[in-house]
Design a protein around this nucleic acid. Sequence first.
DNA 1: CTGTTAGCGCGTTCAT
DNA 2: ATGAACGCGCTAACAG
Lengths: 342, 342
Amino acid sequence: MENNKIPTIKEIAKKLNISPSTVSRALNHHKSIGAVTTMRVHKVAQELGYEVNKSALFFKQQKTHTIGVIIPNLAEPFFSSALTGVEDFADNLNYTVIIGQSLDSLEREKRIIDNMKNHRVDGILVSLTKDTSTYDHFESLKKYKIPIVFFDRVPKRKDIHYVAGNLYSGMLQSVTKLCDLGHRKIGLINGPANLAATLQRLEIYLKCLRIKSLDVDYDSIVSTSLTKEDNKNAMLQLLRLEEKPTAVIVFNDYVLLDCITTIKAENLIVNKDISFISFANLPLWEYMDTMPIASIEQFPYEQASKATEFLFKLIEERNSAKEGNAEYLQCIIDSEMISYTS
Amino acid sequence: MENNKIPTIKEIAKKLNISPSTVSRALNHHKSIGAVTTMRVHKVAQELGYEVNKSALFFKQQKTHTIGVIIPNLAEPFFSSALTGVEDFADNLNYTVIIGQSLDSLEREKRIIDNMKNHRVDGILVSLTKDTSTYDHFESLKKYKIPIVFFDRVPKRKDIHYVAGNLYSGMLQSVTKLCDLGHRKIGLINGPANLAATLQRLEIYLKCLRIKSLDVDYDSIVSTSLTKEDNKNAMLQLLRLEEKPTAVIVFNDYVLLDCITTIKAENLIVNKDISFISFANLPLWEYMDTMPIASIEQFPYEQASKATEFLFKLIEERNSAKEGNAEYLQCIIDSEMISYTS
DNA sequence: CTGTTAGCGCGTTCAT
DNA sequence: ATGAACGCGCTAACAG
């Protein structure tokens, strides 16, 4: 009964004394095959428990119906939300998702790219490593015509497809809010200089201060390499200023968590001695006693969804072999300030 | 220069006027190939930017060097930790990971299984849907000799490979700790009845109370459907008892977060008026002002790692075609109470 | 040491 | 409406 051999098209053909190509066509509901034959083929296929060997199909069609996602760290809520966005979208189109986490190592990023390239994935989504500044390892994908869409952490160049967050909107809302609350000295704890996000944060921070006619004190702009230790030091650096800021914009929630710990150790009161607004990674402030005044939400799920949409548009294009249009799909998703002070 | 055609073994062969198989062997450092030839092949391969077409390889070798992971929800920290565990392990062995999230829908779980089967993955890791009670869709994998290892949410049968968590150890430590702190009335906020985890928690809770000779008050055992509203109600239900419990074991951290919010709204003090211990999902209590006395850690990363190890053992076995041993790889990972009161 | 041949499973010509 | 033949890229068995 249960034949333990994996059934192929050939078996079905033999069983019905017809040719494999007929079976293939019948299985794919090719119109040129008679209704009776088609039915009989499907019946036998059913009996044998036939299922296409996608591995063979991929090989034949030079298309894997698979996309790769490269993110720094799966365990980070920001990225797991993003991954969920990708998976949901891809699943709808019956695409398979393979993952790679770069763990913020450029070496691994390269290896993963190579691996996915060899896998002949149909497209790749990437959120860059903290310290990816070269672009060479992505260039090699061109040869294979594997489209690539960046999201969130995108390279600083114009000739790419990407979906990025716009921090400006949320930052302006935040600075405005702090102003309204009477803050005049707003510091910034920024990230590592090699991240585009860092430069971007600095620029919009300065821009927003200017818009609100606030003085810029470069001493109250500090940065951290994102380690626990460094986060603490950045906070302390601000606390030791002669003119301490009364409010601080923080690179992200993780940094802020360390800042809050530091503040408490110094016996200062959050939101009294010093107020915070941070860029959101964690959906958890609502549960906490000590929380920032607000978070700047960057919508990872939506960013990833949009990026996936772009990717499929590119895959589509490649399939229909329209080479001409060298248009770059680019999208900015506005951030938004989410207030916690009800 | 940059030939935009994807180089194959044939190209290299033609360029050197040798046969494709020689090239293949040289590329794979086959010992029977002369050093000179090998070198020349590698040189040309380099020049052309040759890279194996794994898609072809998979097809040929009937092995995809790919494993599938099916989990209910990528966005849940517990599962994204688990996924990280899988990815880390698989990456070491140069395996690729494809993901599928069942979103707790049996329908999706089946579809994902089918898809992975057609993909001819080398093995599958599964953490079941909330309401998976049938096993048929896994049976079909046998025909393809695709090994399957369950973790965390495992089927209730003996003839499977699995890694499961043991809640007992952590629960006993917790009840003991609460006893030591003088608590005599320990409540339980449990999950929905259809989850295996719920029944399990109830059983070990009762067992532990018995071991510590504590009275069981069935009024102080309540349950929640895991919605925010229901979590709150479960907590209120306990607070309105004539004999309020002085400590409560909570189904998981999410529920506990809502409980804490509820407690505060009632102007009660956590760890004074009422103490908590919960099953851990979130690695965040260390940052919070209000935290449970302890958490019962279930080690998702380790569970998934172990499950992946099992899976590769099975894949290995299949490759070496030892059919004989019908031994089931099974492992229980003890939970552990992690104290927060330093 | 190297070349020749064959075939993995499938879809797709080109023939009838 | 159906069949025969071919080939995708690669490796392994069999010859030298």
